[in-house]
Computed example of a mutant assay.
Amino acid sequence: MTYPIYLDYNATTPVDQRVLDAMLPYLTMHFGNAASRTHVFGLKAEEAVAQARRQVAALIGALPNELVFTSGATESINLALKGAFEANSHRGNHIITVATEHKAGLDTCLHLEQLGAEVTYLTPDSEGLVSPEQIETALRPGTLLISMMLANNETGVIQPLTEIAALARQRNILVHTDATQAVGKLPIDLARLPVDFLSFSGHKFYAPKGIGGLFVRQKTPLIAQQDGGRHERARRSGTLNVPGIVAMGKAAELAQTQLAEEAVRVARLRDRLESGLTARLSDVQVNGTRAHRLPNTSNLAFANVDGEALLMSLNEIAVSNGSACTAASTDPSHVLKAMGLSDELAYSSVRFSLGRFTADADIDQAISHVVTVVDRLRTYQSI
């Protein structure tokens, strides 16, 4: 079977061979439960978890004891938002978020509304950005929490989170950020980024699926949403996924050592893709700001093309038109709609996301394939 060129790294990444090599012994030889401290099997697992905790903490500038291991970013987001609301509801019930958030955040906010929360959903500008001034205008005396993505999963747009979090800290308001697309791609230093919670998934930076984490700043109140053993400093009960944790630790170590170099490399490939397509095709626009976005992400709208036909015809490359979690939806991207795109342009937009194993030849082949497909569809639709 011939596989298409993979340009959907924001959906998931392949497991790096070095990550797999680090993980495998903890599926076979070192199979102990990290909570079993009475014998060598459990102690070996506990030691591996501690090392991975240090590796992940180093990647994001956190303290190891500020990390909670989870099954992934969706669980982390649920824990952060629900746990913070439950622990701090005496301070207020107002939450501020953004209409372009991942559904993991938006759906959790909808759930909290049923529990009495009042949620303000901010609309970004046409470039996908929310300003500190918008946040300040939305504040109320009872504002408890601000939740916003560091980098958007569809457009790659990076929000001015440092300024917004500083504004919140001045008013004693908690801040959660969904950094799922940023961890391993952008330099993050939680000693300088004044957020209280940060959620992420290992499978976005070359670890396996099913492992993620939540940063919880020291002394920040949080109510566990999963009971049954008081694991992870009583924040998340459940037997630790030792092989997954070891894998994410190794992935974090690798990401940290090559982050800057990789960002430059994939940004060059992304720019090559965009310049190649816009030079050979008319009516192609970049969705979202070009100045503040992930180095690996390009969201392009192809005008005068049927969106469904476009995606079905791009069989030589693996791409998407939005989040993998909403791929079954027939609705246009809520992210692009919130940025003001028409239904037609939102449907005909394609997200290209590059990664560690993307090569120059892949980009050249992708350009050629997209140009051929778009030209054919436009000719067919004009008949």
Rank of each mutant, 00 (worst) to 15 (best):
I5S: 08
N10F: 11
D16A: 15
V19C: 06
D21Q: 11
D21L: 04
T28C: 00
H30V: 03
F31D: 15
G32I: 04
A34W: 04
S36L: 06
R37W: 10
V40R: 11
K44H: 08
A58Y: 03
L63D: 11
E66R: 10
E75M: 10
S76C: 04
I77E: 10
L81Q: 13
F85R: 02
N88D: 04
S89C: 05
N93H: 14
I96D: 06
T100G: 03
E101H: 08
A104G: 15
T108N: 05
C109R: 00
E113Q: 15
L115M: 14
E118W: 03
T120G: 00
P124F: 05
V130L: 08
I135P: 01
T137V: 12
M148C: 07
N153P: 02
E154I: 14
V157N: 02
R171K: 15
R171H: 15
V175I: 09
D178F: 01
D178W: 01
G202R: 06
Y206K: 11
A207G: 14
F215W: 03
T220M: 15
A224C: 11
Q226R: 15
Q226L: 13
A234M: 10
M248V: 07
A255S: 15
E261N: 01
E261P: 00
E262S: 13
A263Y: 11
V264F: 07
V264H: 08
R265N: 08
D271F: 07
L273K: 08
E274V: 15
G276T: 03
A279F: 05
V286M: 04
N296Y: 02
N315K: 12
A318F: 12
S320T: 15
S320K: 09
G322F: 05
A324L: 08
H334N: 06
S342V: 12
E344S: 14
E344G: 05
A346H: 11
S349A: 13
S349I: 07
S349Y: 11
R351S: 10
R351P: 00
G355T: 06
A361M: 02
V374P: 07
D375W: 05
S382Q: 14
